[in-house]
Amino acid sequence: MAINLELPEKLDSTVERSHLAAEHIFRPISRKYDLAEHEYPVELDELGKLAKQARTTERAAEGEKDSGEDTVNGANLRAVLNARELSWGDVGLMLSIPGQGLGNAAIAAVANEEQLERFGDVWAAMAITEPGFGSDSAAVSTTAVRDGDDYLINGEKIFVTAGSRADHVVVWATLDKSQGRAAIKSFVVPLDAEGVSVERLEHKLGIKSSDTAVIRFADARVPADNLLGTPDIDVKKAFGGVMQTFDNTRPVVAAMAVGVGRAALEEMRRMLEEAGHPVDYDTPVAVQHAAVAEFIRLESDWEASWLLTLRAAWMADNATPNSLEASMSKAKAGRTVTEVTNKAVEIGATGAYAETELVEKWARDSKILDIFEGTQQIQQLIIARRVLGKSSADLK
């Protein structure tokens, strides 16, 4: 059986448009906003408008089956291609494009048709983590209490990407703490709503061009129909609805890692060739320079990361459960990008460690890609549960 790994022609425009933006908009200002943390990249405003126009055009084509095929190549595959190309330019700037927040992926994952229409053009951040927990998403303590036609939300969220720049935020909150994880729901909350305040912005190791905020909710009132999914508490289904968000966003984060990794591999190859050690795929690795052998090994891991990411996104487009595959792509890509970028710094020595090149920046940026949307350890745990058929209670 032959497997065709070529992307459909209808996605060529996405790749070309995103790469041009990465090359001609992101790369030239990458160092500027790395040094000017918390300063808004005004150069992205026009790009945000163009992206909005492109999304409007693409929505009409989403869900269409390719000619002669029984499968769909839609929004999820397009999202990972876009993330890969833009992150090759600058992953922090990619996370700062107006209208393309992680919360938008959450809306796309679980919103109904009316909500998809109503929130189609918002810029939504994602608020999950709290001061009292990180990886254990079931430990949400932010509350949402029904009050007539509204919900009142109270709590504090930390590490909210684009939290001071987006116009909405998708907030995870519990309807009833006594019901455990089954009562956790996600809400689309306008950031200008009364009771919502940005408390501070974090200073970070990497992705400095992207803001990371602490947001407090004090009796923040939102309409009941801003709840994504059903308000019913079903202990049998636990909080599968909100967790479905990760099945969409983890492949996108994996694609970000693939983009940064490709940038580092390209630079590593250039450095090797300048040093007189070209990569030769027709010669056994064992007889090539040690640094070349290391490059080939890392490149193969990078290729595996990308193939896993494509599979997870394709499954999401075709309504196939992909929790295992989403975690596999995130785990592999997150681990690989940190190894690739650090090896690029090592091979580049003093030149790659200095701020004269972007290599040292990629090494700093890459670490978060192995952490947010679920750490390496959490992904390994999820994969083990799926492979072994264990529940979260059976395998912790």
Results as ranks from 00 to 15, higher is better:
A105W: 10
A183W: 00
D150V: 02
D121N: 14
A331R: 13
K236I: 06
L310I: 13
I3N: 13
R386D: 07
A127D: 02
E274W: 04
V235R: 08
P131E: 13
R31M: 12
A354K: 11
W362D: 12
A344M: 08
G259D: 07
N73G: 03
A254T: 05
L20A: 15
E69M: 13
F26W: 09
D232M: 09
T356G: 13
A60E: 07
N322L: 10
Y151W: 02
K236P: 02
N318M: 13
E346K: 05
N318P: 12
G120D: 14
G63S: 03
V260Q: 04
A106E: 11
S197N: 02
A139D: 07
E303A: 14
A213C: 09
S300M: 15
P190C: 06
R55V: 05
E294T: 14
A173M: 01
G195W: 00
V42G: 08
R55W: 04
I215C: 00
P231L: 06
A75P: 03
G120I: 13
I296Q: 15
Q377E: 10
E355S: 11
R59N: 07
G259V: 09
H38Y: 11
F295N: 10
S96Q: 12
K396N: 08
K236L: 13
I371D: 07
P223N: 10
V140W: 04
R59Q: 05
A22W: 03
L298M: 10
A105T: 14
K332S: 10
A393Q: 06
N76I: 06
G89I: 08
G74T: 01
A22Q: 08
V169N: 00
I383A: 07
V260T: 08
H19Q: 15
T230W: 02
S197A: 02
S13Y: 12
Q53D: 08
F119Y: 14
R118M: 14
D282I: 03
R78V: 03
L381F: 05
Q376R: 11
L310F: 11
L152F: 03
I215A: 00
A326N: 09
Q244W: 09
S141N: 05
T212N: 12
K332P: 00
R385W: 06
V91R: 01
R84I: 06
L175T: 00
V160R: 00
L5P: 04
G240E: 14
A61F: 08
L95F: 11
E325K: 15
Q380F: 10
L388C: 10
Y151A: 05
I128H: 03
V196Y: 02
E64I: 05
Q53C: 06
L381N: 09
R297H: 14
N73S: 12
N112R: 12
I128W: 03
S329H: 09
L265R: 05
R270C: 07
R31Q: 12
D370E: 11
P231Q: 04
R181G: 01
G374K: 07
G374R: 04
T142Y: 00
R364F: 12
S210G: 08
G101W: 01
E373R: 02
L228V: 05
S305C: 10
E325D: 14
G99A: 15
